[in-house]
């Protein structure tokens, strides 16, 4: 299931939040070698201080974090305009109805403990659950479009998930990786399509009553 965690509710989920920042360090710094700032094994940046919304894929049974993504409005500070402007030389989009997703990550711990076939399945399923979560959250908030900056690796993941996007601006090599800016449609059609691929026909969002406030997640942290 997907838990949506607002800034104001971070203190209710200290363990999940901490797991997410450690996962981001492992994925973006250790594995992908991005130039991100890691302190004490946790990756954070200035956009984490802008009260973003986090979507977290949490294992229904164990409460372990499987993946996460961050949403920011394009009316406030956001990555494509303020960090990756090289990708959009003509300027970045901006509107109350366009949000940005960033720091999309799947927890490497999930697949390091599983058999390869099973691991691939979990990665695929978690990716689709997060994507469905983004669409559902945006639909509920009246948001029509999501922009995102991603690399060739993510582009492959989107293709495998049958998640359509359109590249905007000019793809550019940043460091070692080809980097793209893309726009995704937040429509019911998109939701059904992703739902069909991931076998997720009904909502992936945890209702308020299903959002455990600690406990569950904490017990399973080593």
């Amino acid at each position: 299931m997907i838990m949506t965690i607002e800034s104001i509710d971070r203190q209710k989920h200290p363990v999940l939040i901490d797991q997410m920042f450690r996962m981001r360090a492992e994925v973006f710094s250790s594995r992908l070698g991005w130039e991100v700032s890691v302190n004490d094994g946790r990756e954070t940046d200035r956009f984490d201080d802008e009260d973003p919304l986090y979507l977290m894929s949490v294992n229904d049974e164990t409460g372990v974090l499987q993946g996460a993504v961050r949403l920011l409005p394009t009316t406030g500070p956001y990555m494509l305009r303020d960090v990756f402007s090289v990708l959009v030389p003509g300027g970045a989009p901006e509107s109350p109805l366009i949000w940005e997703s960033s720091r999309f990550a799947i927890n490497p711990r999930v697949f390091s403990v599983a058999e390869r076939a099973e691991a691939n399945h979990i990665v695929h399923k978690t990716t689709l659950e997060l994507l469905c979560g983004i669409v559902e959250v945006c639909r509920s908030a009246g948001i029509d479009h999501v922009v995102s900056v991603f690399d060739a690796r993510m582009a492959r993941i989107f293709r495998a998930a049958d998640c359509p996007y359109e590249v905007i601006g000019t793809p550019t090599r940043i460091g070692k990786t080809m980097t793209y800016a893309g726009v995704f449609e937040m429509t019911d059609t998109m939701r059904s399509r992703l739902g069909a691929v991931g076998d997720l026909p009904s909502t992936v969002l945890a209702g308020p009553s299903r959002q455990p406030e600690e406990g569950l997640a904490e017990r399973h942290v080593a």
């Binding site: 949506t4 607002e6 800034s7 104001i8 009260d51 973003p52 919304l53 949403l71 920011l72 409005p73 959250v137 509920s140 908030a141 009246g142």
Partner: peptide
């Protein structure tokens, strides 16, 4: 108290 540190309606 909560709205100022939220994103969702």
């Amino acid at each position: 108290q909560t709205g100022m540190r939220r994103l969702l309606p």
